[in-house]
């Protein structure tokens, strides 16, 4: 049986958005998408797609399906995984799927969508999304689907129904084996995701995503229990004003900085 991999991917505000363009509405408790900066596929999710494509490189009959949920999508952005080489794109699109720091709804909807997709051997997810930095939808999803799970992979290989995962540790690494089906989260240490080729972009242009509503995956939003409620949103207070040390030239500024740190008893 060919391997079936589902990769979850989230459309997020570009984390490289300059601080000056990052705006929130503290009353509406919303982060406002910057007008001048287009959204992106969450970086860790792109690396999860890369991990899936590396498995497909080794076993070309592998099916890689990319799954996303949201209220609306920038289609050119969300088609990038197809251009990179994924086989299918499934979007669960529903006005009720507002981007929230409560991962509960996302876990339920993604789990229902994966069940609808049928026999899945491996679910790959980015370690966290760069918006709410929750790092818990993948683990909740594993619980919901009853899948064995491991996190922060820098390499994922599949052989004879077993996933072999090299994990990043703070001071080293470890190798973990899990019998499929399983869920694995991928970290940036996996390396830069591949760029779409021209042929990939052309092929992606011809592929239409499958679009489902929440009802299509068999869920009723009103039956989903929230876990968390956002009750405040603010910009962080910036620290004390920086004292700039100047000198006759850069070297002189360096010497004066040393004297300043000594004076402030910091060294």
């Amino acid at each position: 049986m060919p391997l079936r991999i589902v990769v979850t991917a989230k459309q997020v505000i570009d984390p490289e958005t300059p601080a000056s363009a990052f705006r929130i509405d503290p009353q509406a408790l919303q982060v406002l998408p910057p007008a001048s900066v287009p959204p992106v596929v969450n970086g860790f999710d792109e690396q999860a797609i890369e991990a899936a494509l590396q498995i497909k490189d080794a076993a070309p009959d592998t099916n890689v399906t990319v799954l996303s949920i949201g209220a609306s999508f920038a289609m050119d952005v969300m088609k990038k995984p197809l251009a990179m080489g994924a086989d299918e794109l499934v979007l669960v699109q529903d006005d009720a799927l507002v981007n929230s720091p409560d991962p509960s709804v996302a876990v339920h909807v993604l789990a229902a969508a994966i069940r609808k997709l049928g026999d899945v051997d491996l679910v790959l997810c980015g370690r966290q999304a760069s918006d709410w930095d929750n790092a818990q939808v993948p683990l909740g999803l594993a619980e919901k689907l009853g899948l064995a799970v491991t996190t922060i992979a820098k390499r994922v290989a599949v052989e004879n129904g077993i996933a072999r995962i090299e994990r990043v540790l703070p001071d080293g690494s470890e190798t973990v084996e899990i019998t499929l089906p399983a869920l694995v989260t991928v970290s940036n240490e996996l390396g830069q995701a591949r760029y779409p080729t021209l042929r990939g972009i052309m092929a992606a242009g011809r592929k239409a995503p499958t679009i489902w509503s929440v009802a299509d995956v068999g869920l009723d939003m009103s039956s989903l229990t929230p876990g968390l409620e956002l009750v405040g949103l603010a910009l962080p207070e910036s620290g004390a004003a920086c004292e700039f040390i100047e000198g006759e030239d850069d070297a002189d500024a360096g010497r004066k900085l040393a004297l300043k740190l000594r004076e402030a008893k910091l060294v």
């Binding site: 505000i13 984390p15 601080a19 990052f22 929130i24 982060v31 720091p101 409560d102 760069s130 918006d131 709410w132 930095d133 229990t225 929230p226 876990g227 968390l228 409620e229 956002l230 009750v231 405040g232 949103l233 603010a234 910009l235 962080p236």
Partner: peptide, 19 residues
């Protein structure tokens, strides 16, 4: 009720646990 950094630390969210 918890405060936590979000958006890579660009904002601080306050969340209430409902369950």
């Amino acid at each position: 009720v918890a405060t936590r950094p979000v958006y890579g630390g660009s904002a601080i969210a306050k969340v209430a646990c409902l369950q």
